[in-house]
Amino acid sequence: MKDFDEALRAFAAEVGSDGAVCVRGGATRWSLGGEPAPSTREVQAPAGVVEFEPAEMTVRVRAGTPVAELHEKLAAAGQRTALPERAGSTVGGALMAGESSIARLGLGPVRDALLQARYVCADGRLASAGAGTVKNVSGFDLCRLLVGSLGTLGLVGEVLVRTVPVGESERWVRVRNADPAEARSCFTAASVLWDGNDVWALLSGYEVDVDDDLGRLEGLGACEEVAGPPELPAHRWSCSPAEAAAFASSNGAAGPFVAEIGVGVVHASEPQLPGPVAPGVAELNRRFKERFDPDGRLNPGRDPLRKP
């Protein structure tokens, strides 16, 4: 219990031990996996950076902290996290949505970023999963289970997240009518986006390597430096990298799109049709929910199987 500070205990008390509750972060992905059931009591996770030790490359932060605020603090030490920044999005919300940053090639997926979680269980008690170190295999890996769970298994109050160094040089470039596979093979490519014609790449790393890769991209076509990625269509598709690379030819009905090459996320104008879920997988999902939240009080109405 000594690990749970006052903010966490107050959060647990607010959640209590009965009645349906849903957590509101920045509400940027509020309907992901379904809208919270109407008239569910809303709670908010505590906010604030608890501890940042740059030489450890980890940060302990409360779940209600805006990602942008966290990153501003980390930037002073030349670091950031793998969490995506959406206007107003929170650390807890980003972890529970489980969607990766557009720079996933460079930063890694969100699912690998969580090292330790302190959370309120369905019965209102506080639990801790994972460890305070960058490496840990002590018992079953609840942290992986919590990422992307939409707050349906436990309500995260405080987390320890891995940080990554910000590249010495970071530049977005746009190359007209280029082969995205070529751009993907650049070592410093932290993001390669493709709309069927043009490629946008975020190069991040040592300046000398970024300059080398810029030279390679210039060889692919008309190349210009840009402020950032293109406007992304509203809907997020989850594809395999090979499907994303062949997206233009196979998904004419999706409308204009931007595919994340090497990752598989595709931002398209039309929503992705839900694919079939194997009965065995659906059954396991049901069993997890039932074991962790037998009364169904945590974020009712939301279901990770119904993403996106």
Binding site: D141, S240, G275, L284, F288, R306, K307
Partner: peptide
């Protein structure tokens, strides 16, 4: 093999 499989991360668990 998709970027963000639906459902709980049973693989990770």
């Amino acid at each position: 093999l998709t970027a963000e499989p639906v459902g709980y991360d049973l693989r990770g668990a």
